[in-house]
């Protein structure tokens, strides 16, 4: 496998009326071609903002940290995403090499333009295809994602399609430009379980066929277990744990990941009590000192947790967590 993207020290803040809010704090990860990375976290953890910053898709009040480096490795050489300035340059990452699928398929299609016209439009922008070629490819893609009677659907509007169908059309549209990286932001959250299973299946097939990398954003650890190769867990803008999917789910190393798994109702033992994580996610305006999770953590080991931000430490091969409990010097002291 070849390296697809490197994200180093991504820090992103927003200037608001109430002050500067830290949305993403020093996040680093990388992704290989053909690899699926799950990005997990609750609302407000910064997972969507992180993914969008790979396309520099942030509002005007966004301020990137000076050490932020995002490098996209393309066939023609690496692209430094942070240095992209105007819309023309940004085309590479916005819809060209990176495509984005949103959570709400109804909101991501323009209601008054047919599905087909929207698909053709983006192909005309990103490729050298003629209008006829674009139409042909669009219909082929609709067929590929399992939409029956694609030439009729091509002329229809978003409201004429069911939720699952819209999400399929969205995937067809996102993939028609043959992106190297697909960011799927909660693509199945608004769907029913049976439709979710269909969409997950479809995405797996497409990874195999197109060999692209996927960043799969979700709050559902079950979906992660069924789709991802590796997982990154975020809490309040911080990456708290990262590793292979089996390691993270079977041997979670960060108390937050453990808490998430314990809070999850599963069908294996329906009599098991549900254990909530105490307290609420703090407001981004009141970021806790030290480890951002210490206010809710049930494994606090001492004053160090509220005083000092933990380093990202290896707990196993390709498995790391940012928690003081894994600091050997602490254990010796």
């Amino acid at each position: 496998m070849s390296r697809l993207i490197d994200v180093e020290n991504l820090t992103l803040q927003f200037d608001t009326d109430e002050g500067r809010i830290t949305a993403v704090d020093n996040v680093s990860f990388s992704l290989e071609a053909g690899e699926v990375m799950g990005l997990v976290g609750e609302s407000g953890s910064g997972k969507s903002v992180t993914a969008k910053s790979l396309m520099k898709l942030n509002p005007r009040n966004a301020v990137y940290g000076p050490d932020t480096r995002i490098t996209l490795h393309l066939e023609d050489g690496p692209v430094d995403v942070m240095s992209l300035q105007n819309d023309t340059e940004m085309k590479i990452v916005r819809g060209g090499s990176i495509s984005l699928i949103f959570q709400e398929p109804m909101a991501s299609f323009a209601p008054a333009i047919s599905i087909g016209d929207q698909m053709v439009e983006q192909l005309m922008i990103h490729t050298d295809f003629t209008k006829a070629q674009s139409k042909e490819l669009s219909i082929e893609m609709l067929d590929r994602v399992g939409i029956s009677d694609p030439s009729t659907r091509f002329g229809q509007y978003a409201f004429e399609l069911s939720g699952g169908m819209r999400q399929r059309a969205m995937i067809a549209m996102a993939l028609s430009t043959k992106p190297k990286l697909l960011i799927a932001d909660e693509p199945t959250t608004a769907l029913d379980v049976t439709i979710q299973a269909q969409v997950i299946d479809l995405m797996k097939d497409l990874v195999t066929e197109f060999g692209m990398g996927i960043i799969f954003i979700t709050h559902d650890l079950g979906v992660i277990a069924q789709t991802a190769d590796k997982v990154a867990v975020m809490y309040l803008g911080k990456l708290v744990e990262q590793g292979e999917v089996r390691d993270v789910i079977r041997r979670p190393a960060h108390p937050y990941t453990r808490g998430l798994l314990a809070a999850l109702p599963t069908l294996d033992d329906i009599d098991a009590p549900l254990t909530p994580i105490p307290g609420d996610i703090p407001s981004p305006l009141e970021r806790p000192s030290g480890c951002v999770y210490h206010t809710r953590c049930q494994e606090v080991i001492g004053p160090r947790c509220s005083a000092e931000a933990p380093q990202f430490l290896q707990v196993d091969t390709n498995h790391a967590a940012a928690c003081h409990i894994h600091d050997a010097s602490e254990g010796a002291a």
Partner: peptide
Amino acid sequence: AIPSLDPD
């Protein structure tokens, strides 16, 4: 159809 927590 409920996604299982077991990657296997």
